[in-house]
Amino acid sequence: MSKGSDIKLIDENGRRIDGRSVDEVRPIKIEVGVLKNANGSAIVEIGKTKVLAAVYGPRDPGIRTILLPNRATIRCRYHMAPFSTHERKSPAPSRREIELSKVIREAIEPSVIAEAFPRTTIDIFIEILNADGGTRTAGVTAASLALADAGIPLRDLVAGIAVGKVQDTLVLDINESEDMYGQADMPMAAMPSIGAITLLQLNGVLTEEEFMKALDLGWKGVKTVYEAQKEALRKRYVELKNIEVI
């Protein structure tokens, strides 16, 4: 719905409603390889936003028509659990979820070396377990880790973050209140090591100058998330290696 209101989102000391500074990302918690059946999986928590992603594939989907002769077909579903929002969300896919499934697939596509698996599908399932802003970007972050966990060759990890504008100030990693009562929401995802932006949307109004600053702030957040992703993968695979030694 439309934005802009009188609710105070930044105090006199420049602190946000959850105590963060304007360019501070919420605490990130990531675990990789959390599901038994999936080929790859990851759970990402960023503040109170909690997202689970799983990857199945490369596999035979049993539907010939969607297979491509020169590469894997990537399928992606972004879905919100009925209990993930304040008011129960109907489990039927909304127009928003259909759009976000596309936007997230397109954020992941350039990272996957799909040419390695012609005539197969790689299926990405993202379930939002708890929504507190930035669910699509947390979904991208989790999906990329699940792909890595599934052993699918990637050009780079894709990390996502949302930049917002509240009380005429740009802020990093907006939560739900800041999204709802703020002036703009700019989700972004990228492959940091090759400087490639793979997701960029803007919901709200920004001047050109604000947009340029938002882009820089977005990169800062993307890099923070990227470091957390790499740390989670390292943790998972160093642990695995130790188990094998025993």
């Binding site: 932006i197 960029l200 949307q201 803007l202 919901n203 109004v205 920004l206």
Partner: peptide, 30 residues
């Protein structure tokens, strides 16, 4: 590779952005 869609108002403010497509863009492209 991809499309990028900007919405602009008559004063040149940005009222929406959508990257749409399988590829990617650099900050410079944007």
């Amino acid at each position: 590779d991809t499309l990028i869609i900007f919405s602009l108002d008559s004063e040149g403010r940005i009222t929406g952005i959508q990257k749409s497509g399988n590829g990617y863009l650099s900050s410079d492209d944007v």
